[in-house]
Amino acid sequence: MLPFTLEKVTSVQDAIAAASSGRRFIAGGTTLIDLMREEVEQPDHLIDINMLPLSEIRIDGSDLVIGALARMADVAAHPDVQRLHPLIAESLIEGASPQLRNMASIGGNLLQRVRCPYFRMHDAPCNKRTPNSGCAAIDGLNAGHAILGTSNHCIATHPSDLAVVLVALDATMLVRGPRGERSFPVEELFRLPGDTPHLEHTLLPGELILAVRVPGGFYSRRARYLKVRDRASYEFALVSAAAALDVGDGVIRQVRLAVGGVGTRPWRLRTVEEALIGKAPDRKIFETAARLALEGARPLSGNHYKLELLPRTIVRALEMTGEAA
């Protein structure tokens, strides 16, 4: 690990001022410290934001507001979260081991970096780590990589489970920067890699995530997060799906669906959602609609299986929304 200086800030204002020169924040550090140890990340200065008053979890009208510094463990255990948005709790528990959940913040979770093994290897080309050096994964080992939203420069999946759920639930980001506060959908936080895969999110210089706001709705009644992987814990998703259904009079009135493990960012599936509206919630309907998720999918040498696994995971997640957790 390279030496770095650490600056502790106690107010949001100070944090933003300190970061305006392009310096970076550190919260739980569960991704950043790991990557600094391997010298993939080499910041010379970090702004410790752990003392900022941003860990509150509260209800505001029908919305759930989660402070950016709330820990994964605290959010998952929060009674309002469990009552109103059980799939947020589910995705957090599935998303990391207890030790990591105790440390990792919600803001950091959304900004965590990719798990492509080549990203962590100094001796392999990686456009994300070293712009314009090439991508070792496209012609290398890519069983875990994305089939949606890829480019000729990067094929890494976005690793966050929580982000998939938040994108499905139409959650919004609340951020503040040198030019004030703004709010936008969580989905718009993430960039597609295109030809600039080193640029991963849309935060402006000096902007700090304050909170995530999750609108209330039908989700609590029929919503599930399904994460498919080769072992039961401590592994990123091969494919995951967050699904919420609102069924009335025997037909689907509303649906929210997003998937992980397949896209270069958390992948909302609006065409699948539209195909389900007004239909009866049965397996045949789910299967037909789920095939639409493959629109534009580009499989690589090692991940053809995701073309099969993705629709199956969607179908299963939709079915599970009608089952008890």
Binding site: L141, R231, A232
Partner: peptide, 17 residues
Amino acid sequence: RPVNAHMADYLMPVNLD
């Protein structure tokens, strides 16, 4: 090169398995 030379990528059973 071994691509998964990492405890997160070389899978072994964990407690839950």
